[in-house]
Design a protein around this nucleic acid. Sequence first.
DNA 1: ACTGTTATTGCAATCGATGTCATAATTTGA
DNA 2: TCAAATTATGACATCGATTGCAATAACAGT
Lengths: 327, 327
Amino acid sequence: MTIYDIAKKAGVSASTVSRVINNKPGVREETKKRIQQLLIKYNYSPNEAARGLVTQASKIIGILVDDIRTIHHTDGAYIIERELVKLGYCCIIFNTGTDEASKAKYINILKRRRVEGAVLIGSSFQVKAVEQAIKKYLNDTPVVMANGYLDLPNVYGILADEQNGVANCVKLLYDKGHRRPAFVIDLHTPSNLAKKAGYEQAVQSLGLGDILVYETNRTLQGGYNVTKKIMQEHPEVDGIIYAVDLLAAAGTRALLDMGISIPKQVAVIGIDNSIYAEICNPKLTSLDNKLLNLSMTAAHTLISALAGGQPNKKILIFSSIEERETT
Amino acid sequence: MTIYDIAKKAGVSASTVSRVINNKPGVREETKKRIQQLLIKYNYSPNEAARGLVTQASKIIGILVDDIRTIHHTDGAYIIERELVKLGYCCIIFNTGTDEASKAKYINILKRRRVEGAVLIGSSFQVKAVEQAIKKYLNDTPVVMANGYLDLPNVYGILADEQNGVANCVKLLYDKGHRRPAFVIDLHTPSNLAKKAGYEQAVQSLGLGDILVYETNRTLQGGYNVTKKIMQEHPEVDGIIYAVDLLAAAGTRALLDMGISIPKQVAVIGIDNSIYAEICNPKLTSLDNKLLNLSMTAAHTLISALAGGQPNKKILIFSSIEERETT
DNA sequence: ACTGTTATTGCAATCGATGTCATAATTTGA
DNA sequence: TCAAATTATGACATCGATTGCAATAACAGT
């Protein structure tokens, strides 16, 4: 059922039908009524692709998510979607994985779909390949990075202040008498490297001795094993900060299984203050990077840019520590 | 940069450029090379909307998710997205909420975008308003329901066998000597009602006395409070089955806080076997509805239907119980 | 050299909308 | 009642691709 079919049935031209559909003036009330009834009768729905072709407005926003195992990234995508749908946009969502080349490929797909804006969720987009792809394909399309930044005229960055956040975690441990903190990292994303830098900075400025950074993969088993390893190699450790709550959750279990009391002997801090932190028993103290806030800010930055506004190029979201039972 | 721009620069017609882009035969090798170089030089990307208009193929799949708080629904959406992207589709994702009218609205949006197929994730799509909207707008578009079914020619249902699954949970408790099971439900979705029916059926067939069904909202606080209430009103209860892992996680904490030992005094079973069940301490025994399997099956059912195949109209996915530390 | 084939290429219609401009219909004013 | 102003409507170009068919070019074969 096209606009022409309706026009024929109504005995008018397509232009008139178009006017009615878009509620434009210049149609006699009587014909308008007649056309509206036909539109309903035949379940007419405009073809947005055709409409977008002539209006040069796809009304599509592209959302790329780097890692779907990261619960707040996927949650963030849904939050952003919800805000944009309110304005009549629709969102195409892709999970790109962490590989650079495939990210560039997805940015090209966004171009082919002629998206009006894009949101890149995850710090791993902060790489050369993405920068080049944006320059090449999304040159005059607003791009908002949720927890990342690239220095391009059309890119807006919303960043969590992770370095200071983690430094504050070390200070919290220090204030509670824990002088030998370790840090567990999984992926080497810019975000995680910032966290690590915060840990190192605080350890040095407080004079807490050697840096103790351990690596593992982002699984419960990984978090469990690395924790046992830490305690075996460095029994003097009395606090562990994990790059994500998931690992911290596994870590607390490892500590309990080793008969170590939390937080008395070893304190634990997770990062993200996700639902995991609350489900855990004992409940995790966690660095709250305000990721919900970050996603909302990303959405509204994009909305502002789409409306032709001049949003801030770079916004820093401050963190706080949600203390629970592991410190 | 359109196909005409490239054509002009190459000194050929748009048709020839189109042939090169789509790798069709009938272009001299030399001109082909020349055009390909220009395509790269000017970063040409085809406008998929224009292409879709003439080919009558949007290459878009619509995914509707009823409740983004349900972690396996959102995960399911990403799994389905990944499978379809491989075939060159792109997915528009909407979260509809549980309200019927808005679901119909989103189905209309899918129509306007001329999606080639749709996936509805969540049992709450199993309602009249959705049935009518599908009939009206997606009449000859394959629609796959992940955990739901509607009797329409173009609808395919992938269903978790929740009723039997929960009945088996009651039997498991029975076999372990727990004779007074309670059941906690949150939303009144068809899925949850099936779970409840399974509970009731098993309690009756095993002759375990009164039905003990409690309601709460899907929050940690809700799960915590309802558990305390159950134990206060019915201290004889020795097993609790929760409609979702999240509530079970909160419930175990409530029991522990009351000084009740798990599973000796009261056993706990969650449903979905999500990451929550593993993060919990003690780790939750959980009914595994194979939701990952369900999502994959949904994706492949849609893919088959898109390819013109005749997939099964209704597929039942059998569940199993993942026993951990709470039974 | 001329005709018959075959390999290249271009013209023009099409997809389903929108929007400009011209024209037809209606209303207003004198 | 007729010109002028206003309102309603339609014809047609356009957006950026694809594609069937016609036209041209290249190349054999005799």
